[in-house]
Nucleic acid binder design. Structure first.
Length: 420
RNA sequence: GUGGGCGUAGCUCAGUUGGUCAGUAGCGCCAGGUUGUGGCCCUGGAGGUCAUGGGUUCGAGUCCCAUCGCUCACCCCA
């Protein structure tokens, strides 16, 4: 029986991997200039971390986690997101003591047991940042600007930044009550899922796609009218800074993200061309999370961006870069006698940093040339018995279709010239 | 977890109302047309239990059911 990759997972083959490497390089460069340090946390954690950090009643914790008992009977969970782990590491190593503000980024796989669809996988990859210990709205604006900078750098356009504020626990509670007062009398008209949301997380009714529910919530009180003075002025400052930096965004008062820990600023970057799963990046402020994870009161803000969705967007926009995995040199060998010498030459070229492929099987020259052509090798070297006797090798420039015989000792220099 | 669509060679797919239907198809792969030379062209070749298991029928890739897989959407999210 043939074994396939588990549902919702995928192999990234060499050709695709070039794109991944390129994306990762660009992303890392942005993080570098913004002075973020990388943190690599385990991909599994004690289940309790996510339960407490993300929120017991979120969909992620309730039904999407890969959880199992290890040999010692401890409950372990494959991380469904990055923030909880980063906060855990931040506290565990007391990073707050090292600098006033801690700016971290991560890049790696996440796991959620959902039914796969376009742009959604069970193992998917995110990069993201977390800033811990900074209250200033300036950092909110910087984090959002940095996210847009990444997409700009990758050449993407037509992305939209959606921005909102969900307030703090105090003003959100007030709003929640006001919303309940408005919705409860009309609960019978809401769609089935919203009737459930009304009990579990009323704010989520706001971003229901059902026209009926949208109609009802259109007349509902607006969250921004309930923000307390601190939250309102923070939100205003964030917008002011974004305006000043020239970041284009739209206020989306229905934007209420699904994770419990968000406070004040929330935002998403979406690309409409992606279908139902159109968010390429989501984040916000989480001023209560560190404390909830057992640390001192510490403000935090961050975002997470999906790599698969980013690459799909690149594809849809035709922005994939031209990347080559071709060898620079293909070394053809004719007959048995030159084999060892050919291997020596190949090893020498590799030591010089020249990407070199070697014929292993001893096929006909024609077959070897075809392979070299297929691999898109820039140069082909041919070593047969004649060349072996003369201590030379034939060097063929595949693009020009020209070739000449080169003494072994000049080979590296000549190749470097040919490769430009 | 719920619903829709799909499942024929490595890939992209033909395959007519069930009766040589298993394709001379394209690309790819291998070999040959050159004794030591690619891209174009020509010739030949390998490769499929038509996802799997039942059923209907004289007869099923073609109809029905189930299972599995893929896919899209809902839920939710990156």
């Amino acid at each position: 029986m043939k074994i396939n990759a588990p549902k919702g997972t995928q192999d990234i083959l060499p050709e695709q991997a070039l794109i991944w490497q390129w994306v990762e390089k660009q992303v890392r460069e942005v993080f570098r200039v913004y002075n973020y340090g990388e943190v690599r946390t385990p991909i599994f954690e004690h289940t309790e971390l996510f339960a407490r950090g993300i929120g017991e009643t979120t969909d992620i914790v309730e039904k999407e986690m890969y959880t199992f008992l290890d040999q010692g009977g401890r409950s372990i969970t494959l991380r469904p997101e990055g923030t909880a782990s980063v906060v855990r590491a931040f506290l565990e190593h007391n990073l707050a003591a090292k600098t006033g503000v801690t700016k971290l980024f991560y890049f790696g796989p996440m796991f959620r047991q959902e039914k796969p669809q376009a742009g959604r996988f069970r193992q998917f990859h995110q990069f993201g940042v977390e800033v811990l210990g900074e209250n200033s709205p300036l950092i909110d604006a910087e984090v959002i600007a940095m996210a847009t900078e990444i997409y700009r750098r990758l050449g993407l356009d037509a992305l939209e930044v959606r921005l909102n504020s969900v307030g703090c626990p105090v003003c959100r509670a007030n709003y929640r009550q006001a919303l309940l007062d408005h919705l409860t009398p009309r609960s019978g008209e809401l769609c089935a899922s919203c009737q459930r949301r009304l009990v579990q997380n009323p704010l989520r009714v706001l971003d229901c796609k059902s026209p009926v529910c949208q109609g009802i919530t259109a007349e509902a009180p607006q969250l921004d009218q309930y923000l307390c003075e601190d939250c309102a002025s923070h939100f205003a400052a964030v917008r002011r800074y974004l305006d000043a930096m020239g970041v284009v965004y739209m206020i989306d008062s229905r934007l209420v993200r699904g994770l419990d820990y968000y406070t004040k600023t929330v935002f998403e970057v979406v690309y409409q061309g992606l279908g139902a799963q159109n968010a390429v990046c989501g984040g916000g402020r989480y001023d209560g999370l560190v404390q909830q994870c057992g640390g001192p009161p510490t403000p935090g803000i961050g975002f997470a961006a999906g790599v698969e969705r980013l690459i799909i967007t690149l594809e849809k926009q035709g922005k994939l870069p031209e990347l080559s995995g071709a060898p620079q040199v293909y070394l053809s060998v004719l007959g048995d006698a030159p084999k060892l010498k050919a291997f020596e030459i190949a090893q020498n070229l590799r030591a010089q940093g020249i990407r070199t492929e070697l014929e292993y099987a001893g096929r006909s020259l024609k077959a070897q040339m075809k392979t070299a052509d297929k691999l898109n090798a820039a140069l082909v070297l041919i070593l047969g018995e004649d060349e072996l006797a003369r201590e030379t090798i034939v060097l063929r420039n595949m693009k020009k279709g020209e070739q000449r015989e080169v003494p072994w000792r000049e080979l590296v220099t000549v190749i470097q010239e040919e490769l430009g």
